[in-house]
Amino acid sequence: MKPAPFEYIAPTTVEEALGHLAEYGYDAKILAGGQSLIPMMNFRLAQPSVLVDLNKLAELSFIRSEKDGELRIGAMTRHFQVERDDLVAEHAPLIHEAMPKIATPQIRSRGTFGGSIAHADPAAELTTICVALDGRFRCQSARGERWVPAQDFFLGMFTSVLEPDEMLVEIAIPPMAPRTGWALEEAARRAHDFALVGVGAVVTLDAKDCCERARLVFFSVGDGPVEAVKATEMLIGKEVSPDLIRAAAEAVTDELDPSADIHASVQYRLHLARVLARRALEKAFARAAAPGTQAA
């Protein structure tokens, strides 16, 4: 299990990196944390001819908040940095809560926030969470830059809108509205495994304790993050009750089209989706209603 040969380039500036991507296009593969790519290379399932290593791009490693409270995370910020960051805990508690569930400590030492997103693994927590939190991604190429909303970013399994010459450089997470609650629920075989099904919930209550906004985004049930839009519409404008939550959770399966693998059948995945949706909504609404829940 040794990787095939490749040409290795380690640019020290984003500009330089973009130049290499422009030059090599489809032949090049970006090496961020490498925690998904290198196993594939060791199995020789991936054999890129050029590796552009972003690990020297110190400029892409940062966590800060903008004046309007928007959280900005540099694409090469490592998972453990996000996990331990107070700003993230305060501004994006859902991300904070998810971090320890991502793989294992050793993977989090090396893996990067942007790498996880660009990899577009449908079983990954962070892609889903960014969608649930209305995140935006700054994508750069030698041609220029663009901001892509998280919900438009993922095109399918391991595919995103990123062009071959383009790279993800920054993630923006807007501040949470007052009275917003969140939850991440997942069912996994072993503690650190990819979830059989997972779901992120973000809900906001209005002044009358009715549901103003609700998002329910799943992972491991499709080709990418899958949002249950109709199910959450059932909640909007309504006073939240256990029965209503249950009904919404039951409804999610109409919008999901999971596939089977050796660990879970379609039926089991759909069942888990209902159960986890209910649990996530219960927890999220409880958090939203809890005194002291306010905007970051």
Binding site: Y8, Q35, I38, P39, N42, P105, Q106, R110
Partner: peptide, 11 residues
């Protein structure tokens, strides 16, 4: 702590 099998020596 990192997996040394998931890094290249050049890194």
């Amino acid at each position: 702590p990192v997996r040394s099998c998931l890094m290249f020596a050049v890194q």
